[in-house]
Amino acid sequence: MKVLVGVKRVVDFNTRIQVKSDGSGVQTDGVKFSMNPFDEIAVEEAIRLKEAGLATEVIAVSIGGDKNQDTLRSALAMGADSALLVKTDDEIQPLMAAKILKNLVEQQQPKLVLLGKQAIDDDANQTPQMLAGLLGWPQATFASKLEIDGDTAAVTREVDAGLETLSVDLPAVVSSDLRLNEPRYIKLPDIMKAKRKPLEVIDLADLNIAASASIATLKTSAPPQRQAGIKVESSEALVAELKARNLV
C-alpha cells in the first residue's frame, strides 16, 4: 500500500503574527517557517503504517516555491521514502491544491492520502475534503485514530459531539487532528540520510491543470486587541468584582 502525504510550508506556529500596516498581508520576511503541524502528524502516521508493515512506500508531496524543498527534506528525515515538489510561485488556494493532489494521486495510485486537517496559515480546512470529493473517495477528517484492516480503515474523528468512528473503504483521504500521534524528533543521522533520498521537482505548468475560480483577498487587518484589565488580590475581591459587573 502506497501512502501519499501532503506537507505545506507555513509560518512556524510559535511566531507572533504581525499584520503589515498597508493591509497587504502578514509579515513573512525574516520569519521562521516550518512544516504545518498537522502535516507533521500526517507524516508520522504514514511512517508508523510503514513500520507496522501496512504501508510499503511513503511519498511526501508539497506545492509551492523552492523553499518547500526544506519542508520535504524534513519529511524525508522523519522517514518518508521519497518526495515530490510541485513548483509554483503563485498563491495556491485549496481548490487548486486539491486538483494538483488529484493529479498526483492519478499518477502514483496510492491507497491512502494523509493530509493535515488544516493549514495554520489560511486556516481553510478544505483541501482534504475537496480532494476526496474530486476523486469520489471516502473522507475521514479530523482523525485521532486510524486502523487499517485489509481494504478498509476504521477512523476515529474528533467531532463537536465527541469521538465518531467511521469505517471507510480504501482508497480514502484521511485528515489528521492533533491527537492522532506525537511526531518524532528528527535526529542528525536522519537528516544526513534524507539528503540522499529522492526529491523530484515538477513544474506546476507541466501538469496542465486548468486554473480554478479563486477568492480574492482585498485586505488583511489586525484583529481588535483585547486589553489587560484589572488585577484583584483575593477570591473575595474576585467574587465582589463579578457581582459588581452583574456576571454572577
Binding site: 488556494q93 485549496p94 481548490l95 486539491a98 486556516d123 481553510a124 480546512n125 478544505q126 483541501t127 482534504p128 475534503q129 475537496m130 480532494l131 476526496a132 470529493g133 474530486l134 473522507q139 477528517t141 479530523f142 474523528r157 474528533e158 467531532v159 463537536d160 480554478s212 475560480a213 479563486s214 477568492i215
Partner: peptide, 22 residues
C-alpha cells in the same frame, strides 16, 4: 462546526467552486 467543515468543501469541489471558511 465539524459538521459544516466536513461537508462544505466536498460540496464545493463537486460544484468546482472555491469556498470561504468561517
Amino acid at each position: 462546526s465539524t459538521f459544516g467543515k466536513d461537508l462544505m468543501p466536498r460540496l464545493a469541489a463537486l460544484l468546482d467552486r472555491p469556498m470561504v471558511t468561517d
